[in-house]
């Protein structure tokens, strides 16, 4: 749902996976920005109703961009810089703290 502007400064790109699918994004992006740039709108389900949510504020306020990063849940995607090889997963409503999901 987001795309790079026409005259973006060239820069290296990084590979990562989201729910197992390989993707790339610009080095310097946050996890949330990298997902938006790859057309991912929803990255978590709420613990109450299970509704899909996606990044809303991009500045650490709303907690709607929560994702699982390399097995660690409840990370705010908009605050975490993307790294090469990151394994990003949808944050299920209630997540088993040992990495599994319910």
């Amino acid at each position: 749902m987001f795309r790079p502007i026409a005259d973006i400064k060239p820069g290296p790109s990084l590979g990562f996976t989201f729910d197992g699918s390989p993707m790339t994004a610009r080095a310097g992006d946050t996890v949330a920005a990298a997902l938006l740039a790859n057309g991912i709108q929803a990255c978590r389900q709420t613990p109450v109703s299970g509704a899909a949510r996606g990044p809303y504020c991009m500045m650490g306020v709303c907690f709607d961009c929560l994702v699982v990063i390399d097995g660690v849940g409840n990370r705010q995607g908009c605050l975490v810089p993307l790294r090469e090889g990151m394994r990003i997963e949808t944050q299920a409503g209630r997540r088993h703290p040992d990495g599994g999901q319910s």
Partner: peptide
């Protein structure tokens, strides 16, 4: 409760 270690 080891299950709680990653709980926020």
């Amino acid at each position: 409760f080891p299950i709680m270690r990653g709980a926020p």
